[in-house]
Write a protein that binds this DNA or RNA. Structure first.
Lengths: 134, 134
DNA sequence: ATGTATGCAAAAATTTTGCACACTG
DNA sequence: CAGTGTGCAAAATTTTTGCATACAT
């Protein structure tokens, strides 16, 4: 599974249960998903448990909510998934992961300029993909 | 009120009704708000109308949904509010608007690199503000 | 005048909660 | 074994829908 995940639970005296492992690894494999899809994808886990688990995961900063292509989704935070951002096609919904160090650095600098210490950030670019421009 | 707003409605053969004007100007004055607060702030407008109006506004790209400080909110799009991004304190929720041309340009370039034509983007930086670092 | 938008009331969908039992450590 | 986490069922909340009336053009 994932050691950082296990360790984080242990550190907070939370048990490593089946629902928690399933949610974590499903998000790990399938990336950002609306809650409804998580629920549908894990029929062996009760709806209420999905909500409760996501709440716990949010508190531990294991997951975060984002809006991608107009939809609210849940995704693993950078700590558990390689850091990246989304480039989403407004027409077909196609999504590409992007990454760019200069932007990251500049954001951190900008934050400092305002007295903030940056912890995380999230970027989403919307546009038309190559196909949909035709 | 706002001419671009009026013109956009007219262009789409939608009427300039009181609820639409109120929602628009409330968002204009108070910035990003959760739907529940919009509903509470405009008691003279029916819940259903708020939802229907927001749907219309989303289609016309007058508003968009964002997640700021963990909460889903509705805000005016760049077209109707000066382009900016959010810098939010994870401790006290304090929010500062930021803006940075080099980042904007680089995002556009990055998109092009992937065959996309960028239309809009959204950035949120989370961190600790000056006060909360103490 | 005509067609659209609204309010109201009801329905559907989503999210939260209480409690008894099961599982983790 | 002790304490936390889960499933199930119910409640609360949020969002959507139908329909008759009111409003904008």
């Amino acid at each position: 599974m994932n050691d950082a995940f296990k360790a984080l639970l242990k550190k907070n005296r939370l048990s490593l249960t089946l629902p928690r492992r399933e949610l974590f690894s499903h998000l790990r494999s399938y990336g950002p998903l609306p809650v409804a899809e998580l629920i549908a994808a894990l029929p062996q886990v009760d709806r209420a448990t999905v909500y409760r688990t996501l709440e716990t995961f949010r508190e531990l900063a294991i997951v975060q909510d984002i809006i991608t292509g107009g939809q609210k989704m849940v995704e693993l935070t950078d700590r558990f998934s390689p850091h990246h951002h989304h480039l989403v096609c407004t027409n077909c919904g196609k999504s590409v992961d992007i990454e760019d160090a200069p932007i990251e650095n500049r954001l951190t600098a900008l934050a400092r300029l305002h007295g903030f210490t940056a912890q995380t950030h999230q970027i989403e670019v919307s546009g038309l993909c190559a196909n949909c421009q035709a």
